[in-house]
Design a protein around this nucleic acid. Structure first.
Lengths: 143, 143
DNA sequence: GATAGGGCTTCCCACCATGGGAAGGTCAAG
DNA sequence: CTTGACCTTCCCATGGTGGGAAGCCCTATC
């Protein structure tokens, strides 16, 4: 199976397959005489694995770990769970951050007349955000 | 005021100030004889504006628009509000996406014993995610 | 057997916002 | 006049992803 077929079978673009190869995420697939990459079922399964893990928001380093656990039949599920839980915590943190942003903006938007007049609490907040109301969500800065 | 002072006064790093200058987000500040950038209160306020807008998750293009509205004393607040609401919608969409990821993972984690044994529903889901339980959140793929 | 087309290879570029660091000019205090 | 802190520009890296060029390879059709 060549890279195009592996791409169709796994749902991962050829670009990305080459990239994963380059960074050593998937075994450097064997090559034909004419230097074409050759894939078997196992590699296609790994590509599907990566695609699914990406869709759950795992980073490449995390996927590297997950893949090596996946390959190891003796792995303790504890380790997999730890990675997943850490990732959930990161997701929750980012969600909370964005939720704060959205809530702040919703509040400001709510207070904005949204007509032809130039007065705008949204711009006022961006200008300095000093008033007690807006400063509710003023500490999102650091990330 | 030179770039270091403007940085301290605005909370924006010198690197970023130069970048904003480069992409034309802030007026190409005037220069001294020895080619040092010169900042006045107005520019520092713009930098603070940008920092606050970034902290609310606005993209650079959005900030460009917001800045030009901010500079225009005749702006209709309608336009500002429209940008803010659009951004809130984008935030909500991304939050929902990540929420789905987190929920799926929480569920899988919950089902994982997390002990020395190798059986792991998390890896099982990544492998194919075919079982009815896991497939609950299996359609996050596309973004 | 030649030619066309599509697939494969590598290599470079771009995104977006940010930081690191080098090489060299400038300023102010001692 | 030296020192140290600051300024300048320029290049590089990040993380995943895509676009595209130049050139080789394979297959099918004539």
């Amino acid at each position: 199976m060549n890279i195009g077929q592996a791409s169709k079978a796994s749902g991962v673009s050829t670009k990305m397959i080459r990239y994963y190869d380059e960074i050593g995420l998937v075994r450097p697939a064997s090559r034909t005489e004419s230097n074409y990459r050759e894939f078997d079922e196992r590699e296609v399964n790994e590509l599907r694995f990566i695609r699914r893990a990406r869709s759950l928001g795992f980073s490449m380093p995390e996927i590297t770990q997950l893949l090596s656990l996946w390959r190891d039949r003796e792995r303790p599920s504890r380790e997999v769970k730890a990675i997943a839980e850490k990732h959930v915590n990161e997701l929750d943190a980012r969600i909370a951050e964005m939720q704060t942003m959205a809530d702040t903006l919703r509040h400001l938007s709510h207070c904005c007349a949204g007509d032809d007049r130039p007065d705008c609490p949204i711009l006022a907040d961006l200008t300095g955000g000093r008033s007690p109301v807006e400063s509710k969500g003023a500490d999102v800065r650091g990330r």
